[in-house]
Design a protein around this nucleic acid. Structure first.
Lengths: 104, 104
DNA sequence: AATTTGCGCAACCGAAAAGTTGCATGTATA
DNA sequence: TATACATGCAACTTTTCGGTTGCGCAAATT
């Protein structure tokens, strides 16, 4: 199975899960309560997110708490870096142009 | 068809296309030359990228130049914002802890 | 005018993904 | 110990995706 972060965040439900557990770890049941799908469907999403290490589990008795691995999100940020350079460059050009226009 | 930016960048070929045309606009044929797939396959990717406004076309005779809409990439950046807050917060905590340890 | 070239579009196909149903397992609780 | 609960896992189904093939059209080239 080809699984990378980009494929993981492609699904809207998975993005919602990520946002949901970003602030505090939650159990599958608690997470599933926030969605219209079944617990198993959510469980499957959790497995995919775990596979690409975007989240990790912490067992507590018979409950399993899933929490976000925030650092992994940086990989997306790193990919964006190349484009950030471009749009910042454009902004600077515009900035200079505006300054020039002001001078005249 | 459910098409959003996250779904668009999920495919590795599409990500490669985005990077490829980031610096300069290119025609479908030129883009396809960089990959192992057929022109039509690339054309399909271009259509998807166009649909969610990540790229735009510019006709020049019978050639069509595709160029990146860098600004659209900011939407991904905006989504990441919420997590950036979290990881910066953590960094600050670690930073303070290290400063405290240094003091002692 | 005939041919080549660049391109999009539609139909089809196999593989993968997302969801559902039905279990099995281990842990609390009565 | 028997029962209820939390969860994972596997099989199956439907939908979606990525790719190929084949076509048509308009712009260049001869």
């Amino acid at each position: 199975m080809r699984r990378d972060i980009f494929q993981a965040i492609a699904d809207p439900t998975r993005r919602a899960i990520i946002t949901l557990i970003a602030l505090q770890a939650m159990t599958p049941n608690a997470i599933a309560a926030h969605f219209d799908t079944t617990r198993q469907a959510v469980s499957k999403h959790l497995r995919i997110l775990t596979e690409c290490e975007l989240i990790k589990q912490q067992n507590k008795g018979r409950e399993i708490y899933y929490q976000l691995e925030v650092d992994k999100m940086k990989e997306i940020d790193m990919w964006l870096e190349q484009f950030r350079k471009i749009w910042e460059e454009r902004f600077n050009k515009l900035d200079k142009l505006l300054a020039k226009m002001k001078k005249q």
